[in-house]
């Protein structure tokens, strides 16, 4: 049976509070933008599920199609696409990200 990447992504982003599609892993990010997002989420003590798109070319293309968003990283909160690195950083700096997580009742790992 052929793989349904769009369905896989939908399932992933809706079954975890926070999902991060990134290059590399949280421990070894392979891209500066992905690394920034990891640092922000870790700083907020947020638990998240991450997917390394470098390990999976179909997901790498699939996630761009899913959102019609051409770049990686991509962050989802409760299934909703929030943005990439620039948007996360802006939301972090203004405190909006913290409020969003609190609003959505997302428990911190800390």
């Amino acid at each position: 049976m052929s793989r349904n990447v769009q369905e896989e992504i939908k399932k992933a982003v809706t079954s975890h509070d926070i999902v991060l599609y990134m290059k590399g892993t949280p421990v070894f990010p392979q891209c500066g933008f992905s690394s920034t997002v990891v640092q922000i989420l870790d700083y907020l003590g947020a638990e998240y599920e991450s997917f390394n798109v470098l390990d999976d070319p179909e997901i790498r293309q699939g996630i761009k199609d899913y959102n019609n968003w051409p770049t990686i990283p991509q962050v989802f909160v409760k299934g909703e696409f929030i943005g990439g690195c620039d948007i996360l950083r802006e939301m972090f700096e203004t405190g909006e990200l913290k409020s969003l997580l609190a609003e959505k009742n997302i428990t911190s790992a800390a």
Binding site: C31, G32, F33, N68, W69, P70, T71, F81, I82, G83, G84, C85, D86, I87, E90, M91
Partner: peptide, 26 residues
């Protein structure tokens, strides 16, 4: 919204986005 601004810019630059490696936007 932030997303809308980014989307508007990336749409205009769709051609360039395919060939560049990294893009950050303010």
């Amino acid at each position: 919204s932030r997303l809308a601004k980014h989307r508007a810019v990336m749409e205009v630059l769709a051609e360039e986005m395919k060939t560049i490696h990294a893009f950050s936007l303010d």
